[in-house]
Amino acid sequence: MIVERTNNLFDMDRAALEQLFVRMGEKKFRASQLMKWIYHSYETDFSQFNNFSLKMRSELAEQFTLELPEVISQQESEDGTVKWLLQVDEQNAVEVVYIPEATRGTLCVSSQVGCSLNCTFCATGAQGFNRHLSTAEIVAQVWVAAKMLGHTRTERKITNIVMMGMGEPLANYDRVLPALNIMRDDFGFGFANRRVTVSTSGLVNKIDQLNADADVALAISLHAPNDALRDTLVPLNKKYNIKQLLDACKRFVKDKKKSRITFEYTLIRDVNDRPEHARELVRLLSHVPCKINLIPFNPFPGNAFKRSTAVAVEQFKQICQASQYITTVRKTRGDDIAAACGQLAGDFMDRTRRSASIRQLQLEVV
């Protein structure tokens, strides 16, 4: 576990805050009081914490901050999807997206500035990687979105959190875990365990660690039914192949009642969307309690892939459903504001300079 020195209280989950107050000579319960001000009342001015003494308020203000990123822009799609661009430092910004539906409101949260995994169908991966987000920068995405939506007072409620924005969450594990704790803490945002989903491209060792550390839902970015194809779409597969990944998934759901893994499968025209791919997929997943989420590819500038036809998507879905898998097709939401799955690009200084090589890989796959 990486321990970083910070004075931003958004970086600290309840356990860390309790330790902080003990060091200050205070009782542990002060942590839950402070969290209620921050996450229930959306208050960041220490002077307003009126159940704290004036002396304690002064000490907090002198020694700590409640620093939030600047909101550069807010865009709203015709379908109600909202995307915010948040400035996290002088050179970098990340995107967070709210997706409203009839019975739920999902917030898609980023974990890194860019992504280092090179998935060839993803706008974030094509742009490269700069750095990990801090716990505070992850938590702040939820805080800012909830406050701007009027989450506690209007019909635009956030009911689900998905770590599916920019970046690979499990590659930033030590900062993501405290953020997950805050999201699920009754004195934090108070989301139910199964309402918080971590999506990974397949960091097997970290899947096992997450299983031990946090009771959350798991989604796997699979996108191919065999190693040869997945190697070209998700290069991480060369380190952790499909068998290793599925074994980790089985360990994750073992002894968990009614628990299922969600397998995300982006459908790319003439690459992975043929009926034989669907039949291979259902055989592959036959021993893993799961559901399948099909995602029609969302194009972005400079990308050679194309979205599967509606006929191909429906045929793929029918093959999966015929094998008794719960199978959904993710609606394309917010693509008019580049907020759809795989389109998040943010604004950042790429330290990896990979764009040209990734475009070449895309052409080779097609």
Rank of each mutant, 00 (worst) to 15 (best):
D227V: 11
L229Q: 07
Y265I: 05
S259I: 06
H287K: 11
I220S: 00
L218C: 01
E264K: 12
H277L: 07
F252P: 01
R251S: 10
E276W: 13
K239T: 13
C249I: 10
V282S: 12
F252Y: 08
P289W: 04
D227C: 08
L229T: 10
D247N: 13
L229A: 07
F252W: 05
A228P: 01
H277K: 05
L222E: 04
V216K: 00
H287S: 14
S221W: 07
R279P: 02
S259R: 00
N211A: 11
N272Y: 08
Y265W: 07
D208Q: 07
T266D: 06
D208V: 02
L285N: 11
Q244I: 03
A278G: 14
K257E: 13
R230I: 05
L281M: 13
K256Q: 03
H287I: 02
R274D: 08
H277D: 15
K291Y: 05
F252T: 08
K239E: 08
D255A: 04
Q244T: 06
V216E: 03
I268S: 12
C290W: 05
D255F: 10
D255I: 00
L267G: 02
L222R: 05
I268F: 06
K291M: 13
V253Q: 00
L281H: 10
A219C: 02
L246K: 03
D231K: 12
D247H: 04
D247S: 14
N241L: 02
A278I: 15
V234R: 00
F263W: 08
P289R: 08
R279L: 15
D213R: 05
T266A: 15
H277P: 08
N226E: 12
T232W: 09
